[in-house]
Design a protein around this nucleic acid. Structure first.
Lengths: 127, 127
DNA sequence: TCCACGTTTCAACTGCTCATGAATCATTGA
DNA sequence: TCAATGATTCATGAGCAGTTGAAACGTGGA
């Protein structure tokens, strides 16, 4: 991975809303989520969300595909992996103490935004 | 690691000069390098370097220690590891395809700034 | 064809990041 | 005490990132 590309990815990740966005999309895999659903789940205005989505897509961290009227966004795991790989290998040069972070899966906290928190819109409203 | 702390670290890393700085300091371990030497190695003005060093130190990615007239800066491997661990565990939730970046040590290129390029000039004289 | 919906683009504004050079502070040796 | 050196802080200005609301665009159903 090029340094410039890694810088773009790091810049994209260094934002509260975009980090939430990645955390929201990550467990959904390739299916992803429509922009409108993301907007509702994160409480972002449509224009603001579009801005952040464009930043992440340009950085190679998410992908989009059009389906009828909706645009579905999903994580680009390869892009995310390449970014982390850049940090580990090119930046930290496989520093033993840094590499240790890969082995012990420490501090796995509950995700801030659970997929269950997403309003399915079309699903029946439970009372 | 707190999300706010991870955001600070990512913001600090999302900069060309600071990424070079980390790559310069990484192979030097705890010994680190004096600010003046870093300034010469990277071709940064002293005030500009001081700004970037402060950003990295505040983000918990480097440490400093005063030695006579010099301030030596070295990487905080634990801080860097925690940042990458946050990306892997909290952000990517151990997504299998992302976690793969830890295993195959791909694309290990020659460092942009080799430690040999640094003029030793004044070795840290402990008095 | 028209309307409704989902999404993106645009202009304007605010605030932050980054770069520059001068000034300042701290330490050492003459 | 003074000058030299190493490093940081400050004021200034340029440019970019983020937010907002309105407008525009594309698609599908009536």
């Amino acid at each position: 991975m090029e340094k410039s590309q890694a810088l773009a990815a790091l810049s994209a990740l260094a934002n509260d809303a975009r980090l939430d966005l990645m955390r929201l999309l990550m467990p959904l895999g390739d299916q992803g989520l429509a922009a409108g659903e993301i907007s509702r789940a994160l409480g972002l205005s449509s224009s603001r969300l579009s801005f952040h989505l464009a930043a992440l897509e340009q950085a190679g961290l998410i992908r989009s595909r059009k389906l009828a009227r909706n645009v579905f966004y999903s994580v680009d795991a390869a892009g995310m992996g390449a970014t982390i790989s850049f940090l580990l290998n090119d930046c930290c040069m496989e520093h033993p103490e840094v590499m240790a972070c890969c082995r012990h899966d420490s501090s796995v906290t509950a995700p801030a935004i659970t997929p269950a928190a997403i309003t399915p819109a079309t699903a029946p409203q439970e009372s």
